Amino acid sequence: MSKFATSDRTAARDSAANAWVLLQTLWVGGIWTLHFLVLPGLAGVGLAPLLIEEVARALVPQMVGVTLGVALLQLLLLIRRYGWSAPWRVRSGQLLLAVLAISLAFLVSLMLWPQALRWQLFSYLLLAFFGVLLVLQPVPRKAVAADPQVG
């Protein structure tokens, strides 16, 4: 056995699971951090409310765009792990499909209906909620017993 982690079979097998957790942390943590820490923190510092709204108007769509891209990557990891029926069969896939739909709806509403601030806030908070539900799901991994190399 080599001393490098890239040559270890278990490390290679778990790389998709590690990527899943990293991607999930990126978008779920980003949504929660922005909405519940950064924006209230700016208000707590004493910045003008209009300035905080401008910051939110710039950062929230970017965070939703990141969510859309990362959720697509997670969906590809899920399909690679469980097959093409995974988005409909596995609960994580169903949640990711909902996240993709809500993200697209949010971004389309920004272009077609920019005055719908309550809809955009609702969509953003729904993404945060679905993110927490996705975090509570088990990480997709290959079954150890099915691997002929283990044992």
Rank of each mutant, 00 (worst) to 15 (best):
G30I: 08
I31F: 01
T10R: 08
Q120T: 02
Y82T: 05
I102Q: 06
G65P: 01
K3C: 06
L42C: 05
G65I: 02
A128I: 03
L104A: 11
L96R: 01
V70N: 00
E53Y: 00
L26I: 14
D8Q: 10
A101N: 09
L39D: 11
A105F: 04
A86Y: 07
G29N: 10
A146G: 05
M1R: 08
A56N: 13
G83S: 15
A143V: 14
G41Y: 08
P140D: 13
T25G: 14
Q94C: 03
F129A: 06
G151I: 03
A43W: 07
R91A: 00
L125M: 10
F122M: 09
S92R: 05
A101K: 02
L136F: 15
V150P: 03
F106N: 05
F130C: 10
A86K: 05
I31H: 10
P49T: 03
V108H: 04
R91T: 07
T67W: 02
L97Y: 06
G44Y: 11
I102M: 06
A58D: 04
L47G: 11
F130D: 12
A105I: 03
R80E: 08
S7I: 09
Q137Y: 07
V70R: 15
Y124K: 01
Q115P: 04
V60R: 08
M1A: 12
V66D: 06
L68M: 08
A101V: 15
Q137K: 10
A17S: 14
A145R: 06
A116Q: 14
V66Q: 15
V21S: 02
L51N: 11
A98V: 09
W88N: 13
S7D: 15
I102A: 10
V139C: 02
G151C: 02
A105D: 06
P114K: 00
